[in-house]
Structure formats: C-alpha cells, structure tokens
Design a protein around this nucleic acid. Sequence first.
DNA 1: TGGGATTTTATGGGCGTCAATGGTCTTAGG
DNA 2: CCTAAGACCATTGACGCCCATAAAATCCCA
Lengths: 168, 168
Amino acid sequence: MPLFLNTHVNKVDRKGRVSVPASFRAALSDQAALGQGAGTPPSFSGPSFNGIVAFPSFRAPAIEVLDRERMEQLSSSADDLAQFSERRDDLAATIFAAAAELPFDGEGRIILPKNMADHAGITELAAFVGMGRTFQIWNPDGFERYRREAATRVREQGGALILRADKR
Amino acid sequence: MPLFLNTHVNKVDRKGRVSVPASFRAALSDQAALGQGAGTPPSFSGPSFNGIVAFPSFRAPAIEVLDRERMEQLSSSADDLAQFSERRDDLAATIFAAAAELPFDGEGRIILPKNMADHAGITELAAFVGMGRTFQIWNPDGFERYRREAATRVREQGGALILRADKR
DNA sequence: TGGGATTTTATGGGCGTCAATGGTCTTAGG
DNA sequence: CCTAAGACCATTGACGCCCATAAAATCCCA
C-alpha cells in the first residue's frame, strides 16, 4: 500500500522543470502496478503512463496529485452526487476540467503548467508534501505557514485521539 | 506482543547515524512481518519495509516512532474523513508531511532527519525511550528532566491505573 | 562456577551508486 | 524562421552498502 510521507523541497529550473522526489515516484509506480487488473478507463493514457495526474486544490494555494485509482474514486463519488444535487457539475468542472497529466522526463521531472504554478504561487522552489495516500505541491513558504496553523488546530482539537483511532 | 522497554542512549556519529537498540529492532521485526531484504527503497509496500517511520511529537520535544504497518493504519483512518475536509488536511499536514521512513542500514542504524533532530534538540546523543507498544527518541538530558517531572506528577496525583483485559 | 572463546552490538570510515540539477541538442510546431 | 517542448548527456553531492574494530554480552566446558 503506497504511502506518501515527508516534505521535499526541490528546485524549479529555468525551463520550469521540477524533480518529483524519488520516493514518491517509487510509491506511484508501486500502486500503478497493483491497479493493473481491471479494465483501464478511456481518456487516460495507456496502462503504463509514466507521470502524475494533478489539479489545482480548491481549498488551498496548492496542487493536488492523485494516483489513477484515487481519481476514479473521486469520479465515482462525484457521480453519486449527481442524483442529489447540482454540486456534481461544479465539482467536475473544478476538478476534472482543470486536471492534467504531467509526464515524467527521463530524469523523473515534470513541468508544472503555468496555471497551476500560479495558483500555488510556485516560482523558484516547489515543496512536495506527503499527505498519506496522496501528495500536494506547494510554495514552500506558503506551506510552512499553513502547516503551523494546521498544527495548532490539531493540538487544540486533540490530535492524540487520532493516534488511537486505529481499529484493529 | 512485543514491548519496547528501557532507555538506551546511543551516539550520533558524524554522518548523523544512530544505532537503534538491538532489542527494539527485535521487537519491531516481531510485530511487523519480518522482511529480510536489505536496501528496500522507501515508500515501497513490498513484503515488509525494514526500518521505522518517525515524526516529531506535537506534545513534546521528541520523535515518535511507529512501524510502517501502523502508519498505514493511520493513513486509512485519515482516509475515512471526508475528502478535502479541513480536518483531514490539517491532520495530513501535521503528521504525514512531517513524517519520514527511516530505513535501517546494514548495521541497524538510521539517519535522523535534520528537522526531527532539531525538534528534539538532538546533537551528539540520542535516547531511545521504550513506551510499551511504541518508543520515542529524545535528547537524553531533555528526557531526564521530563521523566522527573512526570514522576512527580504521577506521585502527586496518585498513579492509579486500572488494568484491563482488552482485546489485543 | 570461573574464565576463556565466540557471537552480538555499537561505532567509525571508505567507496560506489543514484538522485537532483543543469545544460545542450534534437524534434515539432506555429 | 523562430520558438517551444522533449530527449539525451554531464556534474556533484548525498546516501546506501560494505568492511573494520572495539566493547559488551553470551556461551561453553572444564
């Protein structure tokens, strides 16, 4: 089971390229291999697409990165919404229309589309932030600020509970 | 069930490496299905990752240590929260973004990431502190101070603890 | 039961490999 | 023709992996 941990700050070079951390790449190819069984949905590149799927976060100045499996989950969830509300169209427009496949170059780098880089305020440096099953890409300073606020909220709401929340 | 007991103070060498106490390593390989394969890359869900997962404690100047399996459970728990909810992102930013897989080298040592060493105030020496089902890594002096205060509190408040025969 | 022999730990250091980065060249496209 | 994107190569610094040594624990057998 893939797990994205840690925060890696990498440089964006003059051509707009950034290295995706090697550990993240490993985790991605891992889950890609696992998800081979079922029929591959259309409108995605072939089974062995070498890269990531990203879209601008609508809650924060960041770029969300999901693996294919997760993207499909999201799609299904959005479909469920359809029968109950028109939020589905909003979600679809917000997520899927703005999403893009970002292929790796030979060295495991991607190029951040301008609109996403702008949304996240990324220029020179990009922070790859592990979020468990997914990861995000931030402006390093922006993330550090957010992280501090989040840590405060977690402390106040008793994050210790979560540590015991594992049911086993 | 494996238990982490005792306190071991080990040296941090010039390359930032510390030996994890052998007894702790044994306890770890007990609870996780032991994996022999050395050099397993991080974020790899193979048979078993040989190493530990650590993140800075948000309660104390210390490093919390879990095995990978437990971290995956945590990830699943967080997953149950609504996608894109604030709570979920806060937890992820606080825990997963600050956590790291620390693989063992051939001699059972790990490298403490700089941010964690700073958080715990660790430079020359690291205290591995057994906490029952988990353990922590402290600056030895810092832990000694904490231990004294904790002991005082326990004495003053009457350290009553109800034993229970829980499931697992 | 004592003490030497053997195995395990903790620690130190060398070296090769790979990740991150930067550049150049080639191809495609407007 | 000029620009933009993609493929390919080069550099360097960190980390993984290996071996060496000393100290400590354990074993073993007289």
